[in-house]
Write a protein that binds this DNA or RNA. Structure first.
Lengths: 152, 152
DNA sequence: GGGAATGTTCATTTTTGATTGAACGCAGAT
DNA sequence: ATCTGCGTTCAATCAAAAATGAACATTCCC
């Protein structure tokens, strides 16, 4: 037996809020994304506020955040003063690209520390290992990204 | 010209504190890990407290956290009542394995939501896409993990 | 002009999480 | 027995982040 769609929708939105919070997004940003993913079509600023039951100030701040990240896009319609938001098509790719950038940066920073040490220091070897670790992760995620883009 | 090792060490520890904080660890846990990575050999409970300049309560809590994650191990020496901690050998692998587990769990959760929807719902297709996204990431990291283990 | 709708800003409040430090229990040493 | 060193616990404190809501600017409509 199937649950009513609206129930699944609400559960999904709540779940996304928590899942993305664990990845560093503010909770409301996660729920906004969840809503936009589920609905698939643009939602207006005030629809978001009323549906999520949060203040307009929060929508404003979180939308700015998500826009800056390239996760969503703002749409404006002639003759309608409202802002509409929808998922950026390459929303996921953007997120992955940022992840890769962060890991690469960490790898390089650690390698920088390692290279400030004399070759005979054991610490140097360990830090290089850590740098390799981050580099490998960046590589793995890069492959995931490629696999995803060929997938469609 | 080379900086004194102790300077690089301090900088590295501070950097790790911030880098791992961005990945969800408490700041002190990150610094503990940084210190143990740099030094490579076991450090005692009180050494950690005094060197990092934090309370014993913090060391206790964060060590418990890191132990639970499998990132460090506790060592006890006969005739010495102190606890010693050092990096778990497969510390990095463990972290990756957890990351994979989390992403796989998310993928499955999202697919669960998708499958609660009728086939004709557009949302179903979108949620499946999201599930694929997480699955692909898990796959990518899995490859990274394999690459790392063959590397040594 | 007045009024309604819209998004932003910012000071304030709320919430969340980390950290501290005192109290405690336990185990050896004296 | 008492004392000392060690790690844990937990209530209180502190700090950082997020959310709110009122004030504001702008635009459109009458």
């Amino acid at each position: 037996m199937t649950l009513p769609i609206s129930r699944t929708r609400a559960d999904f939105i709540a779940y996304m809020g928590q899942a993305l919070e664990a990845q560093g997004l503010p909770p409301i940003a996660g729920r906004m994304l969840g809503l936009l993913i589920f609905d698939g079509e643009p939602r207006s600023f005030s629809e978001l506020a009323t549906e999520l039951g949060v203040s307009r100030g929060s929508i404003s701040a979180n939308a700015r955040h998500l826009l800056a990240r390239g996760a969503i896009i703002k749409e404006n319609r002639p003759g309608d003063r409202q802002d509409y938001f929808c998922l950026a098509e390459q929303s996921f790719d953007t997120i992955l690209a940022e992840l890769i950038a962060r890991m690469t940066a960490t790898s390089q920073a650690v390698r920088g520390f390692a290279e400030a040490l004399p070759a005979e220091e054991g610490a140097r070897r360990r830090l290089c290992g850590l740098a390799d670790f981050y580099a490998a992760m960046a590589g793995g995620v890069t492959q995931a990204l490629q696999r995803l883009s060929t997938m469609r």
